[in-house]
């Protein structure tokens, strides 16, 4: 599962931050998960709970906030939200693995341009790490 690879990345990054900040244990990790990548939150949560064992994160609580994927056309300035049900299953899966591939399939609903930016809600982002020194 792709979520496991991302969970591993989160645990690895938090561990590095904890060591850098001199934390003996991590108590809280806040994550933002963008809807463009269509992460299965429950799988991510399960993977995190498995991977945190025997690490500085063992007692950490993961607070996961989802963020709508907002796109903005660079040509006409139109803003819109990505909705999974508006793309085919295969396309949704491709975007799940590499969100940038949205540029191969999605066009601005107003002017038809593929030149848009993901203003927010792309993928997994680490917001904060709390712990005890």
């Amino acid at each position: 599962m792709h979520e496991w690879a991302l969970a591993e990345a989160v645990v690895s990054t938090v561990s590095q931050i904890a060591i850098r900040e001199g934390l003996r244990r991590v108590t809280e990790v806040r994550l933002k998960v963008g809807e463009l990548q269509q992460i299965e939150i429950e799988i991510l949560r399960f993977a995190l709970s498995e991977l945190k064992r025997s690490s500085l994160l063992e007692e950490a609580e993961f607070i996961i906030e989802t963020e709508k994927a907002e796109l903005r056309c660079r040509v006409c300035g139109h803003k819109w939200f990505f909705r999974r049900n508006e793309v085919d299953e295969d396309v949704a899966e491709a975007i799940h693995f590499v969100p940038e591939i949205a540029h191969a399939y999605i066009r601005c609903p107003r002017c038809g341009s593929p030149d848009f930016e993901v203003v927010r809600g792309r993928g997994v982002w680490l917001e904060s790490v709390e712990g005890v020194k």
Partner: peptide, 21 residues
């Protein structure tokens, strides 16, 4: 595997993100 032959017009920041991913 993901673009299936479709044109993928990517700007620099998108190229970086796809590579990191």
């Amino acid at each position: 595997y993901y673009s299936s032959g479709h044109v993928s017009p990517l700007r620099g920041v998108d190229v970086s993100n796809a590579l990191i991913e």
